[in-house]
Write a protein that binds this DNA or RNA. Structure first.
Lengths: 214, 214
DNA sequence: AATGTTGTTGATCATTTGATCTATAACTGA
DNA sequence: TCAGTTATAGATCAAATGATCAACAACATT
């Protein structure tokens, strides 16, 4: 009756679970990657047992690498948020040797790769709803490092009498971000080319302030 | 040691809780209202005990009015989603006796009262992330009953060569909705006047397609 | 091959949580 | 005033869930 210990010589059933021993760094990263995908899908209230099953490890192992579930979620935040807004963009936006329109399109071409990503978009929304401090900081960073310089550049380039406000810029930004929200939060079928939509949106915005668009 | 049953004659402590008896209809509505506010704040994974405490009733009473927690959430959806998009708007948008710009501004003036509402915005987002069918239906309704007629009207009114696409319209829409997202999802401090931002956004959009804006 | 280290598992604990059940008390009508 | 009805509270159940711990086995070293 006791099927413990290595007496399985006759039944011949191979050990159900190949117990693979990973280097702690690799295992930790594997858990984080799995957790990002998992929590992005079901939300931060996802259960540790479900996560473990999805990764293919035991639930108890999670707690060998992260003291608490909150600590794991913190690691998820870190993985998702870290190095997302390159500080280089602040400078590139202000580089007047390049046409303003090109600078904006270059930024959003780069940035859209981020916001149109399933895991990012959903974890950003989940953490935002949960009131995570990180969201506020991220948006503040977006405001200070991207939109504010951008506002200044557009004001300088505006040749008409109309000049944009910061609220106008958030409107431009929001319209673009909303593409990702429709895709990944609301899961609406999306067939169009996001880059084209972005380009048209930017063009409309600039022409409203008489920034040459062609 | 047995402090059960009516042997509390000496301690004389008045009944802690005035047990108020409400008409079932009233109680049910009270629960729904409380649930809307509660789930909007903490998410649909909020615990029934916390909800009961917030309402000021016992947790068991919740299950006298709703068989399961899911049934309660369904009632919350119903309360929040029902009668949100007046079918009248489909006609008002197509009423060419009124300048197009006025029609659009009238719609968003009305609609923004909805999307800038805390409970609505957050429950819509929570349910969207949870994959609720109702979201899909709502957005589809928005597409068919509002944006599609709107697209047609703008195309007719466009006097230039440029003509908007449906994607352009979603961009306009998204930029406006994003105001509510910033306010209620990300809880960013918001001081500006939303109506002004909306008006400027609509004006930019229309002028891009040579629809007289003044 | 024997041994030591440690990454991993399975069982288990203590709470939490959705849901149920019985006793109670607030309101109604005679 | 008193009995009947039922809305409500409090205790409790069973499953779920975050977290712990001793035992095991995979890999490295000798």
């Amino acid at each position: 009756m006791n099927m413990n210990k290595k007496n399985s010589a006759d039944a011949g059933q191979s050990p159900k679970t190949l117990r693979r021993r990973l280097h702690p760094d690799d295992r930790r990263q594997q858990i984080i990657d799995g957790a990002v995908a998992f929590f992005a899908e079901v939300g931060l209230d996802g259960k540790t047992r479900d996560l473990a099953k999805k990764i293919g490890i035991t639930q108890s192992l999670l707690f060998k690498y992260f003291a608490t579930k909150d600590a794991l979620i913190e690691a998820v935040y870190e993985q998702v948020y870290l190095n997302r807004l390159s500080p280089e963009w602040t400078h590139r936006i202000a580089d007047r040797s390049i046409p303003l329109r090109d600078r904006i399109l270059a930024f959003y071409s780069d940035y859209s790769r981020l916001i149109f990503e399933y895991n990012w978009m959903r974890i950003f929304m989940f953490s935002g709803l949960a009131g995570a401090e990180l969201n506020r900081r991220y948006l503040d960073h977006m405001h200070q490092m991207i939109l504010r310089p951008l506002l200044e550049e557009i004001r300088v380039a505006a040749s008409g009498s109309a000049v944009p406000t910061m609220e106008d810029l958030w409107n431009l930004h929001g319209g673009i971000v909303y593409i990702g929200i429709r895709q990944h939060i609301y899961r609406m079928p999306y067939t169009a080319d996001p880059n084209e939509a972005i380009e048209r949106s930017v063009n409309r915005f600039l022409s409203a302030f008489s920034v040459e668009t062609a």
